[in-house]
């Protein structure tokens, strides 16, 4: 995983609530055995018109949103399945952070393992962000903050362990393998079955 220390971008603003993993990447695109290049399937069923051309009204297709790496969305973003294809597709679209008042548990965990920062803020703050797509937002992982152009700063929760993983660009697998002596001990003692 590449380190993620800061994100500075205007945001893609999408107030819709309960954006589920079946929208982020529909199940019929999960027949792949790869994890790269899934961005082209992201929001497939909302993104195109019947003739296959991009729907100009769809939020990710609007020219002003091109190149933006922060998505601000309605509550309960990422609900549904455990498919890690969801954050794989979103990062392939160029997203580095998702801001919402609520982010589903499994999606949140999957995102952190793929350099996609899930940020939960109060709905009042999210509403303000949603009203101002022109604001350039500055996110700092080191102090767990999101700064607005007017200087206001909002802090978000990020587990200390996850924070280090993002800052250092390390994944959890190496850490887990290093716990082998503890695991061995556990297997030999209380859990010998």
């Amino acid at each position: 995983m590449n380190p993620l220390r800061s994100v500075t971008s205007k945001s893609i603003c999408w107030a819709r609530s309960n954006i589920d993993t079946d929208q982020i990447i529909p199940a019929r695109f999960l027949s792949t055995t790869e994890r790269v290049g899934l961005g082209r399937f992201a929001f497939n069923d909302w993104r195109y018109l019947k003739d296959g051309s991009p729907d100009p009204d769809f939020v990710f297709n609007k020219p002003e949103n091109a190149g933006r790496s922060i998505l601000v969305a309605g509550p309960n973003f990422g609900c549904g399945s455990s498919r890690e294809h969801a954050p794989w597709a979103l990062t392939d679209l160029g997203l580095q952070a998702v801001v919402s008042s609520e982010i589903a548990d499994i999606f949140r965990g999957n995102s952190l393992k793929n350099g996609l920062l899930p940020i939960v803020l109060d709905q009042a703050i999210v509403d303000e962000l949603l009203a101002h797509p022109e604001w350039e937002l500055a996110i700092e992982v080191a102090d767990k903050s999101l700064r607005l152009p007017d200087g206001r700063r909002f802090h978000f929760h990020l587990d200390a362990f996850q924070q280090i993983c993002l800052l250092e660009g390390v994944d959890e697998l190496g850490y887990l393998l290093a716990r082998s002596p503890s695991i061995q001990k556990f297997e030999e003692s209380c859990h010998a079955r």
Binding site: R83, G109, N114, L176, R179
Partner: peptide, 18 residues
């Protein structure tokens, strides 16, 4: 509980999850 594919790899490698 359900897990993502990274965690599937974690369990394979370590029989553990964080």
């Amino acid at each position: 509980f359900g897990i993502g594919t990274s965690e599937v790899g974690h369990v394979m490698a370590s029989q553990c999850l964080l």
